[in-house]
């Protein structure tokens, strides 16, 4: 069980996919305008990454190494199609707001990266731990970015329609730039700088 915990924990901070490896920046920035979208994207990534890691780890001994990349891509694309259809059927609003970023999970470097770097060389259980750790790391990064962007950009703290509180000045005069595209670059740029400066994350 120690190994499982170890594989899980490394994704959280030491090799956090977004903040350390700088993978999956496109979805991290595109959907981090609100906490709802960030959680929705995390759910999509969880299903795809967990599925692809399990399938790829289970068949790692049958896949000829010369054709492995196309095989991984087909597996991932199938899972993304499934998630896309599921979201369309059961979470239509989220499907609408995630837009093209949901099908684009297929080229999210985190998923293919973990398939190639981890699942194709490790047994199923450890691959599950790896997928969960990476997803939680992705979620932490996304929550951090989207919390800042939503708070500054709208002044409201609400998740899935449940309103928690409003910031005094910001809710009447929100800094709209934070929920606009340049704000995403600003927040993640400053966060990366901050982490480097305080030495929390070694790069």
């Amino acid at each position: 069980m120690g190994k499982f915990a170890q594989e899980f924990a490394k994704g959280l901070i030491i090799t956090n996919p977004v903040l350390v490896l700088l993978l999956g920046l496109c979805p991290a920035l595109a959907v981090s305008t609100s906490i709802d979208n960030a959680l929705g994207m995390t759910l999509a990534v969880l299903i795809v990454l967990l599925g692809s890691n399990i399938i790829i780890a289970a068949m790692r001994n049958f896949v000829p190494s010369i054709t492995r990349i196309p095989i991984f891509i087909v597996i991932i694309a199938t899972l993304v199609t499934v998630v896309n259809l599921l979201f369309h059927a059961y979470l239509p609003d989220l499907h609408e707001t995630l837009g093209i970023y949901l099908p684009l999970v297929v080229v999210n470097c985190i998923v293919l990266g973990r398939a190639e770097a981890f699942a194709s060389k490790n047994p199923v259980v450890r691959s599950i731990a790896d997928a969960l750790g990476m997803t939680v790391g992705f979620m932490l990064a996304l929550l951090m970015i989207s919390l800042i962007r939503q708070m500054l950009g709208t002044g409201e703290m609400s998740v899935f329609g449940v309103h928690f509180f409003s910031l005094p000045v910001l809710s009447s005069r929100p800094v709209a730039i934070f929920i606009l595209p340049p704000g995403g670059f600003l927040v993640i740029g400053l966060l990366l700088g901050l982490f480097k400066w305080t030495g929390v994350l070694k790069r």
């Binding site: 730039i177 595209p181 704000g183 600003l186 400053l190 700088g193 400066w197």
Partner: peptide, 23 residues
């Protein structure tokens, strides 16, 4: 550039300013 901002962070800040210009 401040040492902590070298590399990716300053590139992202530059992208912010470019993005504002493209607005």
């Amino acid at each position: 550039t401040p040492r902590a901002m070298k590399g990716a962070p300053i590139a992202l800040i530059t992208a912010t300013l470019l993005g504002l210009a493209f607005f």
